[in-house]
Every structure is written in C-alpha cells, then in structure tokens.
C-alpha cells in the first residue's frame, strides 16, 4: 500500500476514481464507516453484492469493487429482493437515499421490511434531492427551503427509522455523520442481523441543503446537526412537541423473526425435500 492510499482503497474500483461527490458531502464518511463496520463484522467482502437506486447515495456501489447493481429510481429494494431470493448465500447491501427509498420507493421499503428479507440497507438521508439540484424530499424538515419549496416546506417529514421498525424490520437505527463509532457498530450489527436491517444516516449536503438554508459550509451543517441531535434514551422521556426539528439517534428495532428467503427454502425442504437451487440458469438439465 503506497502512502497516499487509504486502508480501504483495496475495496474500491480505483479505475473509477475520482468520485463525483461534492466537497463536504457526507458520502465519503459513510463509505468509510461502512467498510469499518464490514471489517468489524468479519464479512467476506467478496461475498457482498451491492444494489442501489438513483441519487447521490446510490452512486456509492459503483465505486466499490464488488458486484453492483445500480438500478432505477426508488426500486433498489425490489431488485435486491430478487437478487437475494435467487441466491440467498450472497450478502446483499443496499445504498439508497431519502428521496429514493422514502418517496418514489416508499412502497418497496415497507414491504421489504414487512418480509424481513435479509438485506442491509444504508439510507443516506440528506433531507433533500441532491442529484437533481435541491428539491425538498419526504424527510425535509418543516420550514426548510428547497428549490421546490421557495417559501418553506409545509409538509411533515417521515421518521424513517421508526417507519421501518413499525413495518417489521428486525434491525433499525439512526445516526448522523457525527456519531461515527455508533454508526460503525450499527453497520456491523445490521450486516450480522439475519433479517431486514435499516441504518439511516442523517448527513450534510452543503451544496444544496446548506445553500438553500443558510448553512453554506460543511462545518456549519455539522454544527447544527450536532446541536439538534438527541439520543433515543433521552428522547423517550420527552414530549413530542419538544422533539420537533430534533434528530433522534439510536436503535429503533432489534429483534428476531423468521427471515423471508429462509421461509421459502423451509417450505421447499419440508414439503418436497429440496434446497433452493442456486445458479440454475447455467444448467442444461434441471
């Protein structure tokens, strides 16, 4: 390893660098935290397949040196459901964003959680549409500004980590790009959880969210995120109106439940004595 190489560079497609992310974007921090969590979970990186939708966060798998499926807007979880079902020995990781998975892909999100299919979803929530230039998203705070909310957003944002927990995920957590060690631990736990794991990472988008909301520098954005962060253990004792505009971080679901692809195989095995076939497209005779 040369001195200018990050210790995680071997996991990346070096021929695709430099990446397209803006200066001050949280995506680099999150990639770093992902790889740290992946190593801590002692995962075999060669067995990881990544799936993503459309948006800045969904570009991450394209920089990782593993099989990666960069799909259509909002649909990453449906592609991932097919991939995992076809070959459940793969460790399937989904990178998505707030617009991708909570707006256009909201239905797939709650159904993937309901099925408790063994996927690890890293949802990078920057509260705005970055790739298309700063429109409000389903997680934009009330009163925040975007190019499509020039007079301030009037809609109530989704509480994603809670939504996904309520929909049936066996692991759900939220952190920001400030609580890196907690984030790394959650990624590790999410990867090891044999069910649907959802890790929401609230992050800064200085280019669009910051510019539209008078938080022009990454440090100004990080400072405001830090000031608004409340740990779940404290938030649980607070009134709802006092939590408006706050970022509650912590774990929202951590439980065990039968997993979707295991259920499919169990039926095949119990009723017909068959394991789920893998790579059968390559067989002449089945």
């Amino acid at each position: 390893m040369s001195s200018d190489e990050n210790k995680f560079t071997p996991y990346m497609r070096k021929d695709r660098l430099p990446h397209i992310f803006c200066p001050g974007c949280g995506n680099g921090t999150i990639m770093n935290a992902f790889l740290k969590g992946m190593e801590k979970a002692e995962m075999d990186f060669d067995n990881i397949a990544m799936v993503s939708g459309i948006g800045c966060s969904s570009r991450i798998p394209g920089y990782m040196n593993c099989d990666s499926l960069h799909t259509t807007h909002g649909r990453a979880l449906s592609f991932a459901t097919g991939l995992k079902t076809a070959n459940k020995s793969l460790d399937v990781v989904v990178f998505t964003g707030d617009g991708d998975c909570a707006s256009i892909g909201g239905n797939h999100l709650i159904h993937a959680a309901r099925r408790n299919i063994n996927l690890t979803v890293i949802c990078i929530n920057n509260n705005i549409y970055g790739m298309t230039g700063g429109q409000i998203s389903p997680t934009s705070p009330k009163g925040s500004f975007g190019t499509t909310a020039p007079y301030g957003n009037q809609d109530t944002p989704f509480n994603l980590a809670e939504l996904v927990a309520a929909a049936g995920a066996t692991y759900s957590a939220r952190w920001t790009t400030i609580q890196i060690e907690n984030l790394v631990t959650s990624i590790k736990d999410g990867l090891k959880n044999p069910g649907f794991s959802f890790i929401e990472v609230v992050t800064q988008c200085p280019t669009y969210y910051g510019r539209k909301n008078k938080l022009r520098t990454p440090t100004a954005m990080v400072a405001i995120m830090k000031a608004n962060t409340i740990f779940k253990s404290s938030a649980d004792r607070m009134r709802e109106r006092d939590l408006e505009g706050k970022i509650v971080v912590g774990e929202f679901a951590k439980k065990q439940k039968a997993e979707f692809t295991e259920n499919i195989e169990r039926i095949s095995e119990e009723k017909f004595g068959n394991k789920t076939v893998i790579n059968s497209a390559y067989e002449t005779e089945l």
Binding site: S78, A80, G82, N107, H111
Partner: peptide
C-alpha cells in the same frame, strides 16, 4: 407489492444466476 417491483425482482433474480 406491485408490477414495478415484479420486474425489478426478476432482473435481480436473473443477475443472481436464475
């Protein structure tokens, strides 16, 4: 959950070797 997801899933399934 819908037909959009159905095609997504079979594309994923196909790259999964099936």
């Amino acid at each position: 959950e819908d037909e959009i997801a159905s095609v997504g899933a079979i594309i994923g399934g196909s790259w999964g070797g099936t």
